[in-house]
Design a protein around this nucleic acid. Sequence first.
DNA 1: GCGGCAACTGATACATTGTATCATTTGTTG
DNA 2: CAACAAATGATACAATGTATCAGTTGCCGC
Lengths: 161, 161
Amino acid sequence: MPKALKTHPTRAAQQALERLEALCLERGQRLTRQRRAVLCQLLAEGRALSAYELLERLRPEDGRSTPAGVYRALESLMQAGVVHRLESTRAFILCEHPEAPHTGQLLICRGCGQVVEAEDARVSAATGRLGERLGFSLDQRVVELTGLCGRCRAPHAAHAQ
Amino acid sequence: MPKALKTHPTRAAQQALERLEALCLERGQRLTRQRRAVLCQLLAEGRALSAYELLERLRPEDGRSTPAGVYRALESLMQAGVVHRLESTRAFILCEHPEAPHTGQLLICRGCGQVVEAEDARVSAATGRLGERLGFSLDQRVVELTGLCGRCRAPHAAHAQ
DNA sequence: GCGGCAACTGATACATTGTATCATTTGTTG
DNA sequence: CAACAAATGATACAATGTATCAGTTGCCGC
Ligand SMILES: [Zn+2]
Ligand SMILES: [Zn+2]
Ligand SMILES: [Zn+2]
Ligand SMILES: [Zn+2]
């Protein structure tokens, strides 16, 4: 009788979690204890985490977590389209727009670690056409733009969190 | 008296090597034995290699090569703009257009491993504008498009090389 | 050429990230 | 409940990348 792991999410987070869980099921992924736990942690953290950072956070609640387990859970969640992997930082983050599966762009701030997910039509069109022009049929598009976000670039602004 | 490593490049490769070496020097990188050796191997191989594949190939000629040494050489060559790192495969490849430092796009074939480097104005413009729109000042743009190249997609074509 | 200094190297150890394997457990289906 | 596929637990290992520090090398001005 494996009950859900104890977490204390806010009401909104709870709803977000349910929405993500529904999407996983719709897309043919079983939603198991480990997968739910990974989802919870990513939601609670609100930023990108490495697989081993996830593991650290899961261990206290489930001493049986292992690297392989975490990677397997992440694999399933990426399959379901609710998690993305950041290739340039080797981290994982919740999808911000999981309703429709998509090929997005990720903007990563060096300063605060913030990741913003975009779905820019011009970028998508341009990369698609580039593939065509060079005779490639693309099945994965990694677009990761790194720099400083507005807040981190502001000259002497108080660090408003 | 560390003489240059023994390699037997073609005449054309030799010229390419000299051109790359000149660029490294122009851009303020010392061109040492290890760096030259890494450059040679990448040129000889003509495809992307992981740091440890490079190490395997360097060891026979220079038993003192170490992972740290290879990574340091690669770091310098990337600084000089003559080598790129493929984030999505964790490999390194010679730049095809090293004359002008650039933010290019890489197309990677799953079938044959071929990497094609592009400098598409529309993609560059679109990613640049996306960054601006979201208030980011970008300093790195990773655009890696993976799929099947024309040859690998050809239905029953003979494997013409 | 020669001293002095910064950059680079060699050596070693270690840190991080990701997989393989296989016996066991769990969930679903009939 | 039986049977089967999927997922897990446990363990070990593979692949990728860094830290440290003593010693060496290349460069620059004399
Ligand atoms: Zn997304
Ligand atoms: Zn920021
Ligand atoms: Zn290039
Ligand atoms: Zn191909």
